[in-house]
Amino acid sequence: MSLIESLPKVRKLTVPKADGLLPWLVPLAILLVWQAASVAGFVSPRVLPAPSDVARAGWKLLWSGELGRNIWVSFWRASIGFLIGGSIGFAFGLANGLSQLSSKLTDTTLQMVRNVPHLALIPLVILWFGIDESAKLFLVALGVFFPVYLNTLHGIRTVDPQLIEMGRVYGMTDGELFRRVIFPGALPSIFVGLRFALGIMWLTLIVAETIAASSGLGYMAMQAREFMQIDVVVLSILIYALLGKLADSASRLLERLTLSWHPAFSKH
């Protein structure tokens, strides 16, 4: 009797929990296999230190304050660069999506610049800015600019013209039309740009920090390589993965909050 009663309860409790943990199952399994392989001596610590060693290195750096400082510096650079590049990209996307003149004036130029790999500019950027903050911010902003620009533009251009006609027929002013029809219609595409941009943001920053910096996660990894501290190098790489996941989760949360009307995003 009591067993039967408790059955559905148990199910209700475990199913959502398992659902939330499921995505972490594979990373966790990889860690376990890796640890086991290291302990058994299949992998030399000179090639790949055990996860426990990496954790120990992380703990040490955390205590010394070095890790926190470097993460903070990288995070700061990433966000400021993202804000600058993202806002400029968004502004150009809006302008070129809404105005024929603006599009004719700037789109060709932007498309040409877009096809230059922005990391190829690193030598030039170092010559311009040296290795201080502005060099990193410039590169991140440039990298983030294009995905945001392209997707904002695409979003605005593909808003259903029938809805725009409807808005005009029902007497919406240009401002209202933008606020109530064009912008919400472009939002799903803008979010796609945002998520691309977040990926490029980390990529650019780490490369820039690895090549020319005196602080930050990329710099920490580079320093560690010089002193053969392979555990710190691996630690940095793992932190990149976690930060990337964090950025992605944040943008997903934003999507869920703002796109609840969209059948693909509605959770409730």
Partner: peptide, 17 residues
């Protein structure tokens, strides 16, 4: 031609011009 991002009531309100 309803606005997919507006609730039904808000869509009806659009008609008020």
């Amino acid at each position: 031609r309803l606005l997919p991002w507006a609730r039904v009531l808000a869509n009806a309100e659009v008609g008020l011009g």
